[in-house]
């Protein structure tokens, strides 16, 4: 059963040529008709599905549309044309810790981040200590986040994001969090999330990770799907390119 279904997805950004960010200039240019709006096509006719327990890797150069695709899947960016249907709870693991605030304590940040993801705050409250322990920052949970090292922040964010079973994981290069021990631990947790039925979309430049983790790969180029299929084959073609 497909948990993620993307059909003929198109995303177009409207870009103002000689883009002005000041109103004065905008009025001036509008009067002189110097403004042109061009449509920048970020994604064109992208279709794929992700089933339960599947890991789909998205490959492509910078600017190929990978981040745009993740934003659409996360429900942040509306598609210009086509549809993107995601069934179930999403755990976005894109730039972990984006919702963290340096002046709030570790425990407060865990609560806040969970609330952002739409989780039940009461349930998370009882889990906070466990989350801190899993991330290896138990002693620091009552201190402001600015006293954490960047590795600690990343670990806490990963622990929070993966604390509840989600149907969909959106992963953007976060498999390399922390030291070797923690990496092994986080990989094990990812695997258990996947085996208990999560659908994963993974964006990575790490071809080894793609080959070992993914069950399917999608190669994006300039917003178009160039190739889709077996990860080993797609990676080989991508690297030959």
């Amino acid at each position: 059963m497909a948990i993620i279904e993307v059909r003929n997805l198109n995303v177009t950004y409207r870009v103002l040529m000689n883009r002005t960010s000041s109103m004065k200039e905008l009025f001036r240019d509008l009067l002189k008709r110097k403004i042109r709006v061009i449509n920048y096509v970020a994604l064109q006719d992208v279709s794929f599905t992700v089933d339960k327990g599947e890991v789909v890797a998205i490959l492509g150069r910078n600017g190929a549309g990978k981040s745009t695709l993740l934003k659409v899947l996360a429900g942040v960016l509306p598609p210009t044309k086509g549809t993107s249907k995601v069934d179930g709870k999403i755990a976005p693991m894109i730039e972990l810790g984006a919702g963290f605030h340096p002046e709030m304590t570790g425990a407060e940040n865990v609560l806040f981040y969970s609330a952002l993801m739409g989780r039940d705050v009461k349930r998370v409250k009882s889990r906070t200590a466990d989350i801190g322990e899993w991330a290896g920052v138990s002693d620091h949970m009552d201190f402001p986040l600015r006293t954490f090292s960047s590795g600690m922040v990343a670990r806490l964010a990963f622990a929070t994001a993966t604390d509840e079973q989600a149907e969909v994981l959106l992963v953007d290069e976060v498999l390399s969090v922390g030291d070797a021990d923690f990496q092994a631990k986080s990989r094990a947790r990812m695997n258990s999330l996947i085996s208990s039925g999560a659908a994963v979309v993974l964006v990575s430049h790490d071809m080894n990770a793609v080959r070992t983790l993914a069950t399917r790969a999608v190669w994006l180029e300039n917003g178009n799907v160039k190739m889709i299929g077996n990860p080993a084959e797609v990676v080989a073609a991508y690297e030959a390119n």
Binding site: K71, A74, G75, V76, L77, I90, P92, I94, E95, A98, G99, L116, M117, G118
Partner: peptide, 9 residues
């Protein structure tokens, strides 16, 4: 902005 472009809220 950084949050709003990553998580749907």
């Amino acid at each position: 902005g950084p949050v709003l472009t990553k998580v749907y809220v």
